[in-house]
Structure formats: C-alpha cells, structure tokens
Amino acid sequence: MISLQHYLALGAILFAIGVVGVLTRRNAILILMAIELMLNGVNITLIAFARHAGNLTGQIFVLFIITVAAAEAAVGLALVIALFRGRDTLNVDEIHLLKW
C-alpha cells in the first residue's frame, strides 16, 4: 500500500520543478506551462489528502482548480498573442511595464 507521504512527496517535487520553470524560463508560453506543472503538483496533493481523509472534498477542489486552470490558460494565451502582436517578442525579460 502506497502511503500518503509518497504522493505528497511527488506533489512537492512537481511543485518545486514548476517553480523553477516559472522563475527561470524566459518564454511566456513556457511560463504558463510551468504554472500548469505547479497546479498539477497541488492537485495530486489534494487528491491524496482526499483519499486519506476518506471524503470527496479534495476532489471537488481539484475540479475547481482544473476549471480555473483552463480559464487561466485561455486568458494567459490570449495575452501571449496580444503581446506577441504588439511587441514581437515572447521574452518576459524584455517586458518591464511594471517598472515604477
């Protein structure tokens, strides 16, 4: 029987890899992908907890997370397209509108 800790460890590893991806990749699309990685790490943690606690609330949460992820991907990719049209680049380190 695989213990809860196994799944939590896997979730943590995926999350950490996702964090590294979000913070180090320069391409906006890849950053969005890395965010999906992080979300999947969280999802697996939630499902494992749901199993452990013996109720379905965790699964409900995951369903909503997937919903939000879909919305986020749609809006994020639309932004990517708009960005590419306007700036001719997808490198986030060339975009610093937030500066001051």
Binding site: L10, I13, L14, I17, G18, V20, G21, T24, R25, L30, M33, A34, L37, N40
Partner: peptide, 10 residues
C-alpha cells in the same frame, strides 16, 4: 514519468 517529463518541460 511525471517527474522526468516535468524536468523536460523546464
């Protein structure tokens, strides 16, 4: 597989 694929993504 998941971790390996994740590493490839990153």
């Amino acid at each position: 597989v998941a971790v390996g694929a994740a590493l490839v993504v990153v």
